[in-house]
Amino acid sequence: MRIGLTGGIASGKSTIANMLVERGALLVDADQVAREVVLPGQPALEAIASTFGQAVLESDGSLNRKELGAIVFQDKSMLMKLEAITHPAIRASMQATIHTFAEQFPNRLIVADVPLLYETKQEELYDGIMVVYVPAELQKVRLMARNQVTEEEAIRRIALQMDIERKRALADFVIDNSGSLEDTKRQLDAFWESQCLL
């Protein structure tokens, strides 16, 4: 079984991903893949440099994230140009890894951790979608504490993603991560048993 794991920013998605791995799942992490596709020698990095100029490269040829961020986060059209380069590369790499896992471990759960799964319309790639849910107010509090940002900045970042209530409504499986760690573990155990993954 292949599931897409998503949720809102600061919902605890990484914690849930780790718990699933502890239970025997195989993880493909979109954030990790996103870092890999822009390493020196990768076609995506070459496309970024030709689109945004050599200023987005460090002297060693690696990506200057700060410089690139200064360009794309000030102009939505520039961000869309960047995403048009990176998203297909990330998706192709993830699907290749998932395919390999499925062939090598046909009875294992494969989890793809994709923060913007719904926003990038990837639902059809998976057998089911698991959403890690916390109410928006708790999301804001956790984000402020985790990233040391103001309330205004936290609200702005949360607003960049699809509303968490909408994600919850669309999900095949919901893990409510607003309670205790024990409560979250119980929900994951119930999911694991319901899918006959023991």
Rank of each mutant, 00 (worst) to 15 (best):
R166Y: 12
A30T: 06
N18R: 14
Q95A: 06
E123G: 05
L160K: 12
Q139A: 05
T15K: 07
Q148R: 14
I3T: 04
S194E: 07
S11I: 03
L170R: 06
D60L: 15
D127F: 08
A159I: 03
Q32D: 11
G4M: 00
V114H: 00
V111N: 00
R142H: 07
L27V: 07
V72L: 04
A55D: 14
A70Q: 09
G61V: 10
E151D: 10
D113F: 06
R168N: 10
I158R: 01
V21K: 09
Y118T: 04
E46F: 13
D183T: 10
T86I: 12
M19F: 09
S194N: 13
L138K: 07
I110Q: 00
L26A: 13
Q32G: 06
I98S: 02
S50L: 12
R108M: 07
T120H: 12
N18C: 15
S180Q: 06
G179Y: 04
L143Q: 01
E151L: 13
Q95H: 11
P106S: 11
E123F: 07
E83K: 06
I48A: 01
Q42E: 13
A70M: 07
E124Y: 14
T100P: 09
Y118P: 01
Q122C: 09
T150N: 08
Q161G: 09
R2K: 13
M1L: 15
C196D: 15
L116F: 09
I155Y: 04
Q54I: 15
Q187S: 14
F173W: 15
G69W: 02
L82S: 03
I164G: 00
A10N: 02
F52W: 09
I164S: 00
P106T: 10
T150Y: 08
I16T: 12
P106F: 08
K76D: 15
R2I: 11
T120L: 13
E22K: 11
Q104C: 11
R168E: 05
M19Y: 07
E36T: 15
M94V: 08
S178P: 02
E124N: 14
M130G: 02
M130C: 08
P43C: 05
S178T: 05
M19K: 07
A145H: 14
E83H: 10
S14L: 11
P135K: 05
F101V: 10
F105G: 03
F173N: 06
F105W: 08
T150Q: 06
V72S: 01
I9H: 05
T100V: 15
E152R: 15
V141P: 01
I129C: 05
A112V: 03
E46Q: 09
I48C: 03
Q139C: 04
I155P: 00
P43D: 05
L138R: 04
R166L: 12
T15P: 03
E151Y: 08
Q42F: 12
L20W: 00
